[in-house]
Design a protein around this nucleic acid. Structure first.
Lengths: 209, 209
DNA sequence: GCCTGTGAAGACGTTCACAGCA
DNA sequence: TGCTGTGAACGTCTTCACAGGC
């Protein structure tokens, strides 16, 4: 599917388009133009058309895009036409909040394993029915549970060790909430979510901008 | 301070550099070269020198950068040489997890007000001593508490309303965890943290890449 | 010799402007 | 007419390569 080089930003935007489109669908909007979608997403209309053009032709000239079809097409492009099985490590406040968070399930992500290093927490049953298991079992349990993706919510010190275990499974996609740059061989993809980096951006813009 | 146009990515990287440098400082490393720092951050050495060059000269030729000084300089660039006062709305699992999260306090961000729409939660006292107040009081309480930044952890439906209230305070920098594009006039800066967008990126790369 | 600081070159992503089609 | 699809123009960011200085 990947003939041209797709900008990383394009993928991120497709994800946002799909979120906005789902909203439109809920409001029973049947068709949308790149102009309106662009406004709702805060981007340029040509950007949207170009992003989609990397993957094919999805619109109707003179009309626009059929909302329902476009949602389907984008989800297919992103690989969301399957259930993704997610393992999560570090069941502190944040880890528990993520499991309880409704948006993951809605988008097709399902938590299939949970781990923690704290012996006090092991064996505890979470709201979803998952039982917390020891981090030493990550490789075995994730293989058994056929996990595709890993989420790291541990303190920074533990994050690299967890990533190494994920790598052995192998789990090739990791969402990392620890404020540290994880080092992994090529072929592994780490996405970082760093709240303080975002806050630092705000601080800078309010200070200098 | 802002003579040239600074790339947005530069600010994000400065924030990451500071995080890695703080790690170096803890390990009592006195001096670091752009080459080593680049490896630890996963970027090109010239990138680091260029990023810093936007703001001045911080290194010593033939030697490198003094870790402690560079941390200080970067924090000053980002505007982190003051305490930032943060208001947070939506005290569900995620909101509570954020308040409990140690990294914010460590970087100079202090929660000074918490809000929720649920009458059952109002008046409840959080671990930090903060008392949850009704969202209708956002403007008054934030002014009183002199909040600089706002964090939105509400469901998507409530996020725009909360942002509008922040805008009236006025709070000009908002960290938004709701999966929706918030619309605000120029002069306001919104940073989005959207977990599912990140997961979608992983899904795409594991599917197509 | 070594590493920073920086103009110039190159790569990349975005926007424009219009051709193509309902 | 209206809106998509897309090559070309533009602007921005990154990397190179070397001059400058310890």
């Amino acid at each position: 599917m990947k003939f041209l080089k797709i900008p990383a930003a394009t993928i991120t935007r497709l994800s946002i388009y799909s979120r906005v489109l789902e909203d439109m669908e809920k409001q029973a909007v049947p068709v949308i133009s790149s102009k309106l979608l662009a406004e709702l997403c805060g981007v340029n209309p040509a950007q949207i058309r170009k992003d989609l053009a990397y993957f094919g032709q999805f619109g109707v000239r003179g009309v626009g895009y059929y909302v329902k079809e476009l949602i389907f097409d984008i989800r297919k492009i992103l690989g969301l036409n399957k259930e993704w099985r997610v393992a999560i490590v570090g069941m502190g406040n944040l880890g528990c909040a993520l499991i309880a968070h409704g948006n993951f399930a809605k988008q097709g992500y399902r938590f299939v394993a949970a781990f923690d290093a704290d012996p006090m927490k092991i064996g505890r049953k979470l709201a979803t029915g998952l039982v917390i298991q020891p981090v030493t079992e990550i490789v075995a349990v994730c293989r058994q549970a056929e996990a595709d993706l890993g989420v790291i919510c541990t303190p920074a010190e533990a994050a690299q060790d967890v990533a190494n275990r994920f790598a052995q499974v192998p789990i090739k996609g990791i969402l990392n909430f620890a404020p540290i740059q994880i080092q992994l061989p090529d072929g592994f993809k780490v996405e970082n979510v760093d709240f303080t980096v975002k806050l630092d951006n705000l601080a800078y813009h309010l200070t200098a901008g």
